[in-house]
Design a protein around this nucleic acid. Structure first.
Lengths: 253, 253
DNA sequence: CGAAAACTTGATTAGCATCAAACCAGGTGG
DNA sequence: CCACCTGGTTTGATGCTAATCAAGTTTTCG
């Protein structure tokens, strides 16, 4: 594959390409070395393609609470999340905020920008976030040159749709306790290392599960007492997966 | 446009093209005369294109309760809903069924089939349904010939995603009464004629709003007493929109 | 007509929202 | 350094909402 950079016949890409001296632009190098490239939007692109697109890609860093974009703004770019967690949320007719779903490593958010639409939701950093900004013009021109990318994009949309449905089905009904347990299960999918996962503020848990922050607090406290979760620091807990699964199973067999 | 069939320069299509004697295949005629074509997937195609694709398109009719497809089945075709209402629903880990959203006239469902995936949900007819079956192979080959179709498809996905988010935000929180009122508002978007709309069974309302069928029944009864809705027949009601909006406004200003 | 399914209505209870108060950690300024 | 403040969190007391259990009624359909 590395040899192929110069005479480019290939589509197959190794999981993490070794050094690639043929790339001229520094950002192209960053892209080539990116740990999520294989899973991200440009996984279908070869390195030569990368060398041509680098120019417009900007890496963005956000602190917890900072918005990546906001609902209603003209959509100028999509974003690949490289690290951290982003939450998508909307305000309903009654003015209550509601978290729609989360996006983590290798997820693509703000795809509506590629259709000339305004952003459909607020995207806000939950943790420290690293993201790559992909201007919509770039993607349009790339799709023309590389039709496989269009298929890749469609798969992205379908994944987002699956995620949305999953949140509705798993977190949308059942008792408060069940929803809390299922949320922990979901958060553990994004878990960085081991059984340690990021725990949202009580208010955010409420906004994800459709309950008050007091109820969320009581549930978290109860699960700590029961040894299902264990405090690591203010925003992180370690989860005893067997107990979590047992708790889920016992509440509705 | 009719003249253009023979020398085809056009992309502009009248809302409902008059007789088109130049088309040979009967199904192509059906497509050309289709009332939703302008809004449906092949709106971007000219009539000549239609004449070439007709062969694989089959019109399907369903009675209330019949499935269009089922979750987990290999996705062999997407469907454009021409008339009636289809509900998408899934069973969660605890075995409860949950309605994800509805699809009505001109909506496209089962798009995941075009990505070689199995269907992600059950699609079940709520009312009498007419749908056009679009085999995934057809769409693939068409996309190659007509790149604009890919963009059209992406817009479809985004619309589905918007719908999903909307359901979560609007029907996912608030009191049972508020959710019921918002559901009526949503159902009225699909309303056929005037203020008359299809009313789901109490069990289905429960499955859409995350409540028991008894609560749904009580709410429907109460709204009838209050004159917000009025029985037309077992499955249809007329809605007094001003009262509905007033009820929505008063319960949460 | 009779049985099954869908719907309605009532009584009771459990679960969660609401209101209220106290607690804690972190940061600021005197 | 300590007093103070602020925002997030915990915990308690109380009441309302909707689930549950239980009949009874209407509709549908063989």
């Amino acid at each position: 594959m590395i040899g192929a950079i110069m005479n480019a016949p290939a589509r197959v890409i190794p999981l993490r390409p070794p050094d690639t001296p043929a790339l001229f632009n520094p950002q192209a190098r960053v892209c080539a070395d990116c740990g999520v490239r294989r899973f991200a939007l440009f996984g279908a692109l070869d390195l030569q393609g990368l060398d041509q697109i680098h120019v417009d890609i900007v890496e963005t860093r956000l602190r917890p609470g900072q918005p990546l974009y906001e609902a209603g703004q003209p959509g100028v770019a999509a974003f690949t999340v490289r690290a951290g967690l982003v939450r998508l949320e909307r305000t309903n007719a009654q003015g209550e905020r509601r978290v729609l779903r989360l996006a983590g490593r290798s997820d693509l958010v703000g795809m509506e920008s590629m259709l000339g639409q305004t952003y459909a939701a607020d995207a806000i950093a939950c943790t420290e976030v690293q993201a790559c900004r992909l201007p919509h013009g770039l993607i349009e021109s790339l799709t023309r040159r590389e039709p496989a990318l269009a298929l890749d994009l469609m798969k992205r949309w379908q994944r987002a749709l699956d995620d949305a449905d999953e949140w509705l089905v798993e977190l949308g009904s059942g008792s408060a306790r069940q929803r809390m347990l299922r949320l922990l299960l979901k958060l553990s999918e994004y878990g960085e290392e081991g059984a340690t996962l990021w725990l949202p503020s009580r208010e955010q848990i409420g906004s994800m599960l459709g309950m008050t922050l007091e109820t969320a607090s009581r549930l978290v406290s109860a699960l700590k007492r029961e040894g299902v979760i264990e405090t690591v620091d203010k925003r992180h807990v370690r989860v005893a997966m067997p107990r979590l699964l047992a708790a889920l199973g016992s509440s509705a067999g």
